[in-house]
């Protein structure tokens, strides 16, 4: 049986940074009636590299849901994750690209690794997504369902 994992990365107390965990919460709700999510391992992470590796090691499909700056707020994109290191300036000194590169060195990449990244606008202290980012939760969750469906 395929092992499928969805990892929502972020901090729900930093507004739009809580996008990943929010999508995972939505998926947990959907799983009760959506057979495409049966058996899918739903996780929330702060992006710490060792935990990310542990979460996706041995998975056939891993979907990382995260938020980024620098794009049109509320829009989202699907990325095949790069295997090269990026400048290590993220929250725990390791960007997602560097984590992927480390996984590559250690033969810990899942068979298929996809990132769904929404562009946030508000990263201050506090709970609750901005309206534009909240609007992306449902379509991203739907895309996760498509990606997570058994092949």
């Amino acid at each position: 049986m395929e092992r499928r994992v969805v990892i929502g990365v972020g901090n729900e107390y930093r507004r739009d940074d809580g996008f990943g965990p929010r999508v995972v919460a939505e998926l947990a709700e959907r799983r009760r009636h959506d057979p495409r999510l049966a058996g899918v391992d739903l996780r929330v992470s702060d992006g710490e590299p060792a935990r990310m590796l542990e979460a996706w090691t041995g998975a056939d499909v891993a979907v990382v849901v995260d938020v980024a700056r620098g794009g049109p707020p509320g829009e989202w994109t699907e990325l095949a994750l790069p295997r090269t290191a990026e400048p290590a300036t993220s929250g725990h000194g390791f960007g997602l690209g560097a984590t992927v590169a480390l996984a590559h060195e250690l033969d810990r990449l899942p068979r298929r690794l996809v990132a769904l990244v929404a562009y946030g606008v508000e990263f201050g202290f506090g709970t609750g997504l901005s309206d534009v980012v909240a609007a992306a939760v449902s379509p991203v969750a739907e895309r996760v369902c498509e990606l997570g469906a058994p092949s």
Partner: peptide, 10 residues
């Protein structure tokens, strides 16, 4: 230097 790497947080 734009970013100090390998510390917890920023």
């Amino acid at each position: 230097v734009p970013g100090l790497a390998r510390v917890e947080g920023e």
